[in-house]
């Protein structure tokens, strides 16, 4: 028996919207830690890792140890679009061997209750171990600013060079029509803490990434006012959006490497 009641159902809607363009189908894992997912895009260039901790749910029951539920994200997105933004979402499944999952949507005043049953699928997914890394630079900035920069640069070029120095974090691209550079300096003198740009640098770092993926990651912007970008030479970048009081969604993107 699995029963997860999420009062802020819109969080789940936003999470799936941020993943569905990159991930076709994935196993959601339910364990005592929480509701989680790890999946790669079909080219194995990006890895997505989601955790919604069990204590963030109003009710969290998961009796079967680690219980993977294979879902096609496009179908899950269709179903979650039927939930109102203020609805409470309950996820129910009988356990291993059962091939359906039920989503129940309750309006805040309880005047409308809907349930949608979705078929589960068997998915062979490879779980990757993500080693603890010492990052050369960790930058926290407003998520809307990061989204704006990725969108702006993709009208000029296909790749972005992200460099962190004492001066700040620089995003550069070039394309047929010209070049673009955007520098964000550390800025902690802001009225609201979420507007700050905070740069922790152990050593300067510069890496090249495909902008198409970065732009996809920014679909998670509605989940958090801030984004954290962690960089180390010749390692995947980690773009993390915290999910209020519940967990996170992390996007890992393999760099482009000079041959």
């Amino acid at each position: 028996m699995l029963e997860l009641r999420l009062v802020q159902g819109s969080l789940l809607k936003k999470v799936i919207e941020s993943l569905k363009d990159l991930v076709n189908d994935a196993n959601f894992d339910c364990s005592s830690t929480g509701f989680s997912l790890q999946a790669m895009d079909s080219s194995h260039v990006a890895l997505m890792s989601l955790l919604l901790r069990s204590d963030g749910f109003e009710h969290y029951r998961c009796d079967h140890g680690n219980f993977p539920m294979g879902m096609k994200l496009e179908n899950l997105s269709k179903i979650l679009k039927c939930a109102g933004n203020d609805d409470i979402i309950t996820i129910k499944a009988d356990g291993p061997g059962n091939d359906t999952v039920t989503f129940m949507f309750e309006s805040p005043s309880q005047e409308k209750i809907a349930d949608y049953e979705m078929k589960l699928m068997d998915i062979d997914s490879e779980h990757l171990g993500i080693p603890e890394a010492e990052f050369h630079a960790i930058v926290r900035m407003p998520s809307s600013e990061f989204a704006r920069i990725c969108k702006d640069l993709s009208s000029i070029g296909d790749t972005v060079v992200i460099s962190v120095t004492k001066e700040g974090i620089k995003f550069s691209t070039k394309g047929d029509i010209g070049t673009a550079n955007v520098v964000c300096r550390q800025n902690t003198t802001v009225d609201k803490p979420e507007d700050a740009t905070i740069i922790e640098m152990q050593q300067p770092v510069s890496l090249t990434f495909a902008l198409r993926y970065m732009n996809s990651f920014t679909k998670a912007t509605p989940l958090s006012n801030t984004v954290t970008i962690s960089l180390s030479s010749d390692l995947p970048v980690v773009v993390e959006y915290k999910i209020a009081e519940m967990g996170y969604i992390r996007f890992y993107l393999a760099p482009k490497i000079e041959e």
Binding site: M40, A46, H127, G129, T208, P236, A254, K256, E258, E259
Partner: peptide, 14 residues
């Protein structure tokens, strides 16, 4: 020329 690397060359199954 920059070549796109894959996540699987950094993280291994486990």
């Amino acid at each position: 020329v920059n070549k796109q690397s894959q996540i699987t060359s950094f993280f291994s199954p486990g």
